[in-house]
Write a protein that binds this DNA or RNA. Structure first.
Lengths: 292, 292
DNA sequence: CAGTAAGTGTTCATTCACGCACAGAGGCAA
DNA sequence: TTGCCTCTGTGCGTGAATGAACACTTACTG
């Protein structure tokens, strides 16, 4: 049963009872229908129809085929309906990934989106490794830093995270606050382990603070945050987060050159779907209202 | 969902995960697979797969299609197995038709065949109208008279019915028996209504008996038999039937020129099937043993 | 009974889908 | 990094599947 189109042709012949009728339904020439039937019968080694001048009547084998193909036709029709409809409504899985550092902001946002769209099942992936859109691992990613340049990704600028320098109250109690760059040598800073970090505030750190003063380095932003809060030194944090923490003191207010862009990234194949569009619109609306 | 072959292609891609793998399974070039997928997605307006250098991964729509097409593939495989196997075993409906006049002989034969082949459902059609093989109304027909010359029919000679002239005892009591052709004018005969009947004994009747002596004419052989048994006159009957009837007297023993051939007829499309062949063989065996 | 309409089936020209070949893009191992 | 392998993707030429036309058969109808 190698050729499904021939089965479909035979199905219509069995339904219509004539080659001509089937040809009309199928939108092909009746000669094609005859050839399909002949090929299928030759393949199976059994006559599916008895031919006569008034049309084709199905043999037992033909009626068996009719039943199976009818079920198949129904299944395919339902499938087509589901697939076409899927693009039009907001339902099914919705997989979002982002840096773990953004989880505190993103999770409530996604929860609110799910409240508005009861049919979606939100799956929010944060992990050590990068989840890749091009492998179908997620519908939408929220990325930070330099704009992703993958060819198949649709990248939209979401906002610039306002990054300031903060330290814990315990640190300030012990070391005070620097009055200016000349004091940096007497202070302790939390930096990144990777020398070639692209984050603009770490570039600034490398250029303006003596390496000897960077007494705590780590790779994970969450670790950096925990270190700052534990009094390890002065470090860089998102203003909208740090501003809410009573234990943190603002050493330097956010500067434009420190700001880190956030990107909304989707795979081009999924970007046009209404489900993804709905989420993107929702995120951008909420962001405009200061949710991030 | 117009093109079932494209669904099959998409199914294999979803199963294999790569275009190349699907192409190998399907026995086509991978370019063909790509074209099928593109066409199907364009038709549905939804991406079924996300493309990347390592292969294709199914989207939700693609996985939905995978499930449905998997079921279809299973169904078709089962169907092919049933259809191919159907030719090899003797089961299912077996439709036989004949003249009603032969029912008394044929019915026990078919009953015996059913006893030997428990899986067949015998349907024995006798009726006023001729059941037509070319319309799929019956698998096998038993026909009398001139050999059917329908092009799609396979005709086999079964036997020659030995036909004699008989009359009821009541008729003989009233009219006696003719000693020779010269007495025919004083007797009564049961003939056929249709002047151009091809039955050889009716041809003989027309040539050897004065029309005035044919006092009872009818079309149906059963009516003729009833008329003869009721004493309407001398008529022609199958020897094997008339010999068993105590009430009938043999006026003339069967003559070779009266004998009516019986034909086993099948449609060419069904003739080769083992089921039909089994019945044909059975009938011929039984006939050779004198069952008819 | 002629005429019409519908349907099958075959031959021939055409075109569309297929296979081929090559380019490009990742991934993997040395 | 470099080379190699696998897989996708695309332009091009060819052949198989398709459509058009015609012949033939059968049923229906006035």
């Amino acid at each position: 049963m190698k050729n499904w189109d021939e089965v479909r042709t035979a199905f219509q012949v069995a339904r219509m009872g004539t080659v001509s009728g089937a040809a009309e339904v199928l939108g092909v020439h009746h000669a094609t229908v005859i050839r399909h039937i002949d090929a299928l019968e030759a393949q199976l080694g059994v006559k599916l129809f008895q031919r006569h001048a008034r049309g084709y009547t199905a043999t037992e084998a033909g009626e068996d085929l009719l039943r199976v193909a009818q079920a198949t036709d129904d299944q395919f029709a339902q499938l087509a309906g589901r697939i076409k409809g899927r693009g039009a409504d907001v339902s099914g899985d919705l997989v979002v990934t982002s840096l773990a550092a953004l989880a505190q902001k993103v999770a409530p946002l996604l929860a609110a989106f799910q409240q508005q769209n009861k049919d979606v099942y939100v799956r929010y992936l944060t992990g050590d490794r990068l989840f890749r859109l091009e492998y179908g691992e997620a519908h939408v990613a929220i990325r930070a830093g330099v704009a992703p340049d993958q060819p198949d990704n649709v990248v939209q600028h979401l906002l610039d995270m306002q990054v300031g320098a903060y330290a814990s109250r315990s640190y300030v109690a012990a070391y005070g606050q620097p009055d200016g760059p000349e004091d940096y040598a007497k202070h302790r800073f939390v930096g990144t382990e990777s020398r070639e970090s692209r984050a603009p505030y770490y570039v600034w750190l490398q250029e303006n603070v003596p390496p000897a003063s960077v007494t705590f380095r780590c790779t994970d932003p969450r670790a950096a945050r925990a270190a700052i809060e534990a009094g390890a030194g002065i470090g860089f944090l998102d203003q909208s987060y740090a501003g809410e923490q009573a234990d943190l003191v603002e050493i330097h207010a956010p500067r434009p050159e420190w700001s880190a862009p956030l990107w909304l990234v989707t795979h081009v194949d999924l970007h046009r779907t209404t489900k993804v569009q709905a989420l993107l619109r929702f995120i951008k609306e909420q962001t405009a209202q200061g949710a991030l």
